[in-house]
Design a protein around this nucleic acid. Structure first.
Lengths: 104, 104
DNA sequence: ATCGTATATACGCACTATCGTATATTCGAT
DNA sequence: ATCGAATATACGATAGTGCGTATATACGAT
């Protein structure tokens, strides 16, 4: 989870990820659409790939990058834990109120 | 979203957040349970609070910190966008397969 | 009023990460 | 075989971030 969060917690990388949400893109497209230098794009894509957020397939000398689903699924599962914890607190509150109801 | 991600993308802060998942804690408890220095805890809590991830209520000279739901809800909604995008891709794939089915 | 406890902030240092520029690599085209 | 396009990497400089130590602040207890 930390590696996923670390990879996303950088403005430029988050922009790249948000762009890739609309579909796979070549490095050059990302460079042009987000107005970044080419090494900047390659470097950030490297980080995203190492974090498992993207994968690339080579077409001739171009590389098509796309998002991987897994890390996003994992984030969803991770969030579930928090959702459950609040449900738990609500259950505890409900139990408390129920108990309080016995002695007005 | 960026501020939330930035706040969470630090090992110690993530540990604090994970601890707070089990319920509200005083600064001293966090310090003891996670084996951190007191200024370290205060500093990280400050960042988490500025990011809107936690809020505190004062009891005498102690401050009870707890998670706020909103940023987690927002993360869930943000993830929804990605889930939908993959559904979209799957729909496109389904449409393609459907079309292909016409001519074997 | 003073003291001790609990928490927050200030400041200097070290480390990491990002950026820009230059260079390497890969591959198709000629 | 050579050239150009597309992408990746190396390297130096800089800026941001976390840590430790010391200090400030707030509040209850005596």
């Amino acid at each position: 989870m930390l590696t996923t969060l670390t990879a996303l917690a950088e403005p430029t990388r988050l922009r790249i990820v948000e762009l890739l949400q609309s579909g796979p893109r070549y490095v050059g497209e990302i460079e042009r659409l987000l107005v970044l230098t080419q090494p900047q794009v390659s470097k950030h894509l490297r980080v995203l790939r190492d974090a498992g957020l993207v994968e690339s397939t080579a077409n001739a000398q171009r590389r098509l990058y796309e998002l991987r689903r897994e890390p996003f699924v994992e984030m969803g599962e991770w969030l579930e834990g928090y959702r459950r914890s609040w449900e738990g607190h609500l259950d505890a509150l409900a139990a408390h109120l129920e108990q309080s109801g016995d002695d007005p």
